[in-house]
Every structure is written in structure tokens, then in C-alpha cells.
Amino acid sequence: MDDEFAGALAACATIDAVKALFKQRIAVHGYTASACGAFLPTDMGPETHFFFQDWPPDWIELYVRRNFLAADYTVAEARRRIAPFTWLEAKAVRTLSRAEQDIWDTAGEWGWTDGLSVPIHGPGGYFGLVAMAGKERPMPPALRGELHQLAFLTHERCRALTRLAPVINPRAALTHRELECIRWVAAGKTDWEIADLLGVSQTTVRTHIDQARRKFGARTRAQTVARLVLEGLS
């Protein structure tokens, strides 16, 4: 995890500050526009909530006027995926409808020939999404992992600032031992090292870490540690 970015993000007191920090960080990788939001389940269907949009105003107007959201295949793909994916990767495994192809062609006219979408799924049907637009470029695993973490941290900070879809207070939900184990994970310790430090078995350590992960609504240890930092529990 990028501790410097996580620390700077935790210090952001407004959504605008989060947007500016995220924009600056992804720009070095060639991404020129982005959005961060969530689709909340309601009785009337998913309700779209944008934390921020860093698209040109004319593009936003066009996207809304032509109702691109209803036919945006990257959103549809994000609903059924867990891992980050490039828009070209998603395009390669589906036959685009006329409306979907229209979005792709129009985005290309604006100079966006590829992008990266990071799905974020949480308890109760929560579905968040961070999208970055740019030009086609290689996506080695290390870069994909870095952008995944940046997007996840950014989304979580936005959610915390807006108090959207709150979850159980982790400080109250985690046991002392669960919190202790996750803090050691954040410090870079292995399961074996944590077990040795606490005088318990590695199986017990893994159980505590997995329980903490579930309580945070996280899918990986890295996400659990990220939420630990953002909740001020580290």
C-alpha cells in the first residue's frame, strides 16, 4: 500500500480535495479524466450517486443528454466483476450493441481510447465504481495493482466523507485480538511472525484476520488494512 498517498488522502477534509489528489496521482499514468461513485440498491432500482466527476463539462452534458449511462458496457461489466479491468479487455469479451458501440466511438473522438474500471462491492448490495479514462497503454500487474489500491482508497475516503452507506463502526465491531492482528499485518508481518509475537497458532491468526476482513466488508487483506488506516484505527 502507498502509505504516503493513504496519509494524504486521510488528511483530505472535502471531496474536492480528494478529487484533486486522485487526479494528480493518476495523471502520471496518462489518465486525463475520472469519476468515483456508487449505485445504491433501492425499491425503485439502483440509485446513482457520484462522489465526484472529473470529466469535461461538455462530455458530461453529452453523456446525460444521450443517456449513455443506460448503455455503458463498462458499468455493466463492473457489476459482475471483482477485479479491475481495462475497457479494451471488457470490449474483447462481449459483442457490443449499437448503443454500446456508439459510446465507445464517441469516447474515442474525445481522445479516450481505453480506460480502467475498478469495481467495489460491499455489504447489502453496495456497488461502487471508480473509472479512469485515457489512451491505450500496457497494463502490467504491478501498475494494475497500484491503480486498484489508489481507486479503492479514494472511494473509501469519499464514502467516509459523505457518510454514504455506513457500516458497523469497526472500532466497536473488532475484537482486541482481531485489531491487533490487522495492525501487525499493516506493519508488514507474516502470519508466522504474528503467531510468534502473540503466542498463538498461525491458524488462529488467519482466523482473526479473516474475521476482521469480513467485518470491514473487505475482499482482501490489503483492503482491510486500507480501511484500518482510513478509519483511524492504525
Rank of each mutant, 00 (worst) to 15 (best):
Q24I: 02
P41S: 06
V28C: 05
F39R: 12
T95C: 03
D43H: 12
P46R: 14
W59M: 14
M44R: 15
I103K: 00
G108Y: 06
A20M: 02
W110C: 10
A10P: 07
G45Y: 11
W104R: 14
V93G: 01
K91T: 08
G111Q: 04
F68A: 08
T113L: 07
T42W: 05
R66A: 06
G128Y: 00
V118Y: 00
G45T: 14
S97N: 03
Y73F: 13
F68D: 15
I15G: 01
L116T: 06
L9E: 07
T74K: 03
R98V: 14
A38W: 00
F68N: 11
G37A: 03
G115R: 00
D105Y: 07
P56W: 03
D58I: 04
N67A: 05
S117Q: 04
D105K: 15
E47R: 15
Y126S: 07
H49P: 07
A27R: 15
P46S: 10
N67R: 11
A8I: 04
V28F: 14
L9R: 06
S34R: 02
A8F: 08
W87Q: 15
L96R: 05
Q101H: 12
L62K: 15
F51S: 01
F22V: 14
G122Y: 01
W112H: 12
E61R: 11
A131R: 13
W55I: 13
P56M: 06
V28S: 04
A17S: 09
L21H: 04
S97Q: 06
V75Q: 05
E77S: 11
A99H: 05
Y73G: 00
R98C: 08
P123E: 13
I82S: 11
C12T: 04
L88R: 12
T48L: 12
Y63T: 15
Y126N: 03
P84K: 01
W112E: 07
L116G: 00
P41Q: 12
V75H: 11
T32A: 10
A78C: 03
T113H: 03
V64Y: 05
N67F: 10
I82W: 04
A71H: 14
C36Q: 06
Y73N: 10
R94H: 06
A13F: 09
V75D: 00
D72C: 01
L88T: 13
A20P: 06
W112N: 11
A20N: 11
I82A: 15
R98E: 15
A92N: 13
Q101W: 12
M44L: 13
D54Y: 02
S117L: 04
A76Q: 11
A33P: 05
L96S: 00
I26Y: 02
S97P: 08
Y63H: 10
R65D: 08
P119E: 08
L116S: 01
A33F: 04
V93Q: 04
P46E: 11
T48C: 12
C12Q: 04
A10I: 06
D43A: 14
L69N: 09
A13I: 03
W104L: 09
D72F: 03
E89S: 08
H49D: 12
L62R: 14
F127Q: 05
V93P: 04
G37F: 00
V75M: 02
S117E: 08
I15F: 02
G7L: 09
R94V: 03
G45D: 11
D16T: 07
E47F: 05
W87S: 11
A99R: 09
P119G: 05
A83E: 09
W110F: 12
A78G: 06
